[in-house]
Design a protein around this nucleic acid. Structure first.
Lengths: 334, 334
DNA sequence: GCCAATTTTGCATACGATTGCAGAATTGCG
DNA sequence: CGCAATTCTGCAATCGTATGCAAAATTGGC
């Protein structure tokens, strides 16, 4: 029950040097003679000393903490993002303070507020947006913010997304190959940029091919809502024979309804295309054709940009769009 | 580009009071007169002041940060755990510093080491274990550690798990109702306590009913490994007609192989029971019978215990086991 | 071996808050 | 209104580390 953690002063005393020497030994760029370094190394090892990141943060003004805000983790896209972002940041010596902004917690505002209390070095908002007053606040405190998989009109906020308009066009192309008669769209949350852009590209490409939307329903990116929306679309006299869903998570819900509840055949009766390419899309039970977001590229891009911003570099590019990739599997006809 | 964040000194100056008064205003138990409180409130509001958590942590020795260690997030059980743990801790004024201990990062040791550098108030290891030297280190620094969904022989470490032996017995009971002839087990990672205990209960209950294992393979709690293991078990002349998998994630992989690859019928040819009751188990495509871990109870228990420990209370109970619940769906016969 | 140029080293201060202590202000009661 | 009891308030020290500055030690060239 020793309780007290070891400090640099303890190490200094034990090694017979000054506290500053110990500090310098643990600071990459500093100059320490070999003799001292060795004495300090030994003493530190014996005492099990490790520098206190919090104390260091007070002086340097860098906490090496990145605030990561996520709405929910039900859709497998998010756990994958969180895992990869976290690993990438860890590899760069940063760590992730995780904040859930789910409905149970309330709004994003207070959540971001409490992030700022921790004096994080930067913030990544995953599929979430930010009021401009809050964005101003971050800017005032010099804390870079990056949006991941979501964009916002505000010119100032940096964002990394897929090229969603292009992705929507791809989805249209994938469905059009099968010669569909009635094309439907199952939309995600209407307020999101991702939804708006994907639908925009989708509808535009349909129009160019002389088609228009047969029907449309909203699933808000949630499984249960999407299942309801699918019922609304398909449990009618003339159901669609092609469906583009705003993301894979909703596509899986739609497949469950279409095949299991309604007994329709995929892709013979209905072709389905999703968006994201989450791991489950590749599972044999679903075997979902989809538009892949290149997660690894998106993650390394956002981490790279954020760290550059944290370290004071001001890159000109604010909106980074990654090209998506069509993935043909078993839910489309050709 | 004001850069400098607002400090309590700024607020004090603006409000015409001492810095300590400002500090007291933001400290729940402290005494401040109404007049001062009002002046401070106004000044703080105008300047947008919020106390620096890091500075506070230095004095009080409490960072209000909890280190959360997770191996990976592919299995939906983990995102759900992370989400709920995070929310529960947020509600109690704590926040989560997330650490991935996946293979790409290497061992758990250095990860936990860097957690300690942040002077966290406590640590939750989700389905991970800890060397005893590291555990000693945490104890020396007075940092409580809780294991979640994993146990370890060491008497000292606190752990919250399901009653896995009992859960294994339940799984046996669920399969035995269907009058199986050949019962197989698809095991998770053999080094884990969860695996050992679930299998122990399962085999014991089979024995009591006059049965024994027909075959067994190892899936290490990974989708791909589990799919291979399922092929090993079922792509043979006399395949099993009942299967218990170490968790739901592997059960889904097994179902994909059994139904789609091999064309067997579930539950007519093979009955399947999983463990966890992850959200996907309830999806119509799987409709998996399983043994539910009561996530909400487990989460509130572990958070409750951890916070009690952080705040100095020393509860006697170290190993907390939550009773699991059988969930009958469409993959079992009766 | 001497002196200038270069490294190392320690001292002292700062970061932004909390908190014990003692004096100032307020309150309560006869 | 006076005095004791109580509540507020400010001063100053403290947490654990980083860092500018000046003194001490080392190095190098001749």
């Amino acid at each position: 029950m020793s309780g007290k953690p070891v400090t640099s002063v303890d190490v200094a005393r034990k090694a017979g040097v000054s506290q500053s020497a110990v500090s310098r030994y643990f600071t990459p760029g500093a100059s320490v003679s070999k003799k001292m370094a060795e004495k300090i190394r030994v003493a530190a090892e014996e005492l099990g000393y490790r520098p206190n990141v919090l104390a260091r943060a007070m002086i340097t003004g860098r906490s090496r903490i990145i605030g990561l805000v996520v709405y929910y983790l039900e859709n497998q896209f998010y756990p994958e993002a969180v895992e990869k972002l976290s690993i990438a940041l860890q590899e760069n010596g940063y760590h992730v303070l995780l904040f859930m902004a789910s409905n149970t917690v309330g709004d994003v505002e207070p959540v971001v507020q409490s992030i700022l209390d921790y004096r994080v070095d930067g913030i990544i908002l995953v599929s979430a947006s930010m009021s401009s007053t809050l964005a101003d606040r971050c800017k005032a405190q010099n804390i870079p913010v990056m949006l991941f998989n979501r964009d916002q009109p505000s010119q100032d906020l940096r964002a990394v997304t897929s090229d969603n308009v292009e992705g929507g066009r791809m989805a249209a192309g994938m469905l059009l190959k099968g010669g569909p008669k009635r094309i439907a769209h199952l939309a995600g949350f209407e307020g999101s940029s991702t939804q708006q852009q994907r639908e925009e590209g989708f509808v535009a490409a349909l129009a160019e091919a002389g088609h228009q939307l047969h029907s449309r329903a909203v699933g808000n990116y949630h499984y249960a809502d999407a299942a309801d929306a699918a019922r609304e679309l398909f449990d009618v006299p003339e159901p669609p024979d092609a469906l583009f869903t705003g993301d894979d998570h909703m596509a899986l819900a739609a497949l469950d309804v279409i095949r299991i509840e309604l007994g329709l055949r995929v892709p013979e009766d209905v072709a389905v295309v999703g968006f994201d390419d989450i791991p489950q899309a590749a599972w044999p039970s679903f075997n979902l054709s989809t538009v892949r977001q290149r997660m690894n590229v998106m993650v390394s891009t956002v981490v790279d940009e954020l760290i550059a911003a944290v370290e004071g570099e001001d890159r000109p590019e604010r909106k980074l769009r990654i090209a998506p990739v069509p993935v043909y599997r078993g839910t489309t006809r050709d």
